[in-house]
Simulated assay, not measured.
Amino acid sequence: MTSPAALDAAAALAAETPSAAIDALPWLAASLIDDAAAGRFAAWGRSTIVDENVGQAVLPRALFDELHARAGLDASWPVGNAGLLHVYGYLLSTTPTPYGLKRERWLADDLALACGLSRGAFSPWTGADTLLSRVTAAAASLLSRPDTIDEAVEGLSTRIALGDPLPDGTTALAYAVDGLIVTMFPVADAAALRSGLGGPRLRWNAA
Rank of each mutant, 00 (worst) to 15 (best):
I149S: 02
L131I: 03
L113A: 11
G179D: 12
G169N: 11
L156Y: 07
R194W: 09
A152E: 15
G127V: 08
W44G: 02
A6D: 15
T136F: 01
F185Y: 14
G169Q: 12
D129K: 13
L131Y: 06
Y99S: 14
N205H: 08
V50N: 08
L113V: 08
D110M: 00
A140L: 14
L73Y: 07
L28P: 01
P200Y: 02
R134G: 05
L156K: 15
L59Y: 00
R145I: 02
A30R: 09
L193F: 14
R134I: 02
T2M: 14
S93P: 06
A176T: 09
L113G: 04
R105W: 01
L166I: 11
L143M: 09
P165R: 06
L166T: 11
A43G: 06
L25H: 01
A191M: 13
A21Q: 01
V50T: 11
D178C: 12
R103N: 05
G89E: 04
L166W: 07
S19L: 10
L107M: 12
N81K: 00
L84S: 01
E52R: 10
L63F: 10
S195A: 15
A10P: 00
I149M: 07
R203D: 10
R203M: 08
H86A: 13
M184I: 14
R201D: 13
A174L: 05
R145Q: 08
A192L: 15
S19R: 14
V153L: 12
R46K: 13
G72S: 05
Y88F: 13
M1S: 13
A15I: 11
L111Y: 02
R159D: 11
P26S: 00
S195P: 04
A42C: 03
A24C: 00
G199K: 13
G196V: 07
D168S: 13
A30Q: 12
P96M: 07
V54D: 04
C115G: 00
A82Y: 02
Y175C: 08
D129N: 11
G80M: 02
P4C: 12
G198Q: 12
V135E: 03
R134Q: 02
A137G: 10
I181F: 12
A38G: 04
P167W: 14
P78D: 07
G72R: 04
L91E: 00
D74M: 08
S144E: 15
A161L: 12
P78G: 09
V54K: 05
A10V: 00
P60E: 09
D34C: 10
A30C: 01
D65V: 11
L91H: 00
T158Q: 12
L143T: 10
S133R: 12
F185D: 03
A174F: 04
S195Y: 09
S19M: 03
T17I: 05
G89N: 03
L132F: 01
C115E: 10
P186H: 08
L59T: 02
D51C: 11
F64L: 06
M184S: 14
V182Y: 10
P146L: 04
P78I: 10
S157A: 15
L84P: 01
T171C: 11
R119M: 09
S133C: 12
P124Y: 03
W204C: 05
P60S: 10
H68C: 06
R201G: 10
L7R: 02
